[in-house]
């Protein structure tokens, strides 16, 4: 059976989520492995969400936010940028493949970019294979 990655997408309400909506309404095709969770701002994302997602079986995590400078709350994504950069470094030093976590700035008008990013990220995760490192044991046995 071919590997169907589980990817968690955390999208900011104002840009990436609207961008995803646009990708949908313009009938763009992109892989269905992404499960999107909407948050009000990329700075709403607690780094623990990301660690926990990996533990609960995510093969990759994609975070989407507004372009820096375009944040609905003016500065949210600028905080998020620093915070998520640290998250990435931590996952990397712990030994997780750096390609499993990605942050992208996708605006509400970039439906195309959303589809492209999801396509690209899914292909990347497929190449990396199932994420077994952080996954909790009960889930690992089932797989």
């Amino acid at each position: 059976m071919s590997f169907k990655p589980k990817i968690l997408g955390i999208a900011c309400n104002w840009c990436t989520y609207t961008g995803a909506d646009l990708a949908g309404t313009t009938r763009l095709h992109y892989p269905q492995n992404l499960r999107v969770v909407r948050v009000m701002c990329s700075s709403r994302i607690n780094p623990s969400f990301i660690f926990r997602a990996f533990q609960l079986g995510a093969d990759g995590v994609l975070v989407g936010g507004c372009h820096p400078g375009d944040c609905h709350y003016n500065t949210g994504n600028l905080y998020a940028r620093r915070r998520l950069a640290v998250t990435k470094k931590i996952l990397e030093f712990a030994g997780l493949e750096p390609g499993r976590f990605r942050v992208e700035w996708i605006s509400a008008s970039e439906g195309n970019k959303f589809a492209e990013v999801v396509e690209e990220f899914t292909a990347q995760i497929k190449e990396l294979g199932p994420q077994q490192k952080l996954k909790i044991d009960e889930l690992r046995e089932k797989a």
């Binding site: 820096p68 500065t75 905080y79 940028r81 620093r82 915070r83 640290v86």
Partner: peptide, 8 residues
């Protein structure tokens, strides 16, 4: 982490 720079 409670600070930011636009030019980051």
């Amino acid at each position: 982490l409670v600070d930011f720079r636009v030019e980051d």
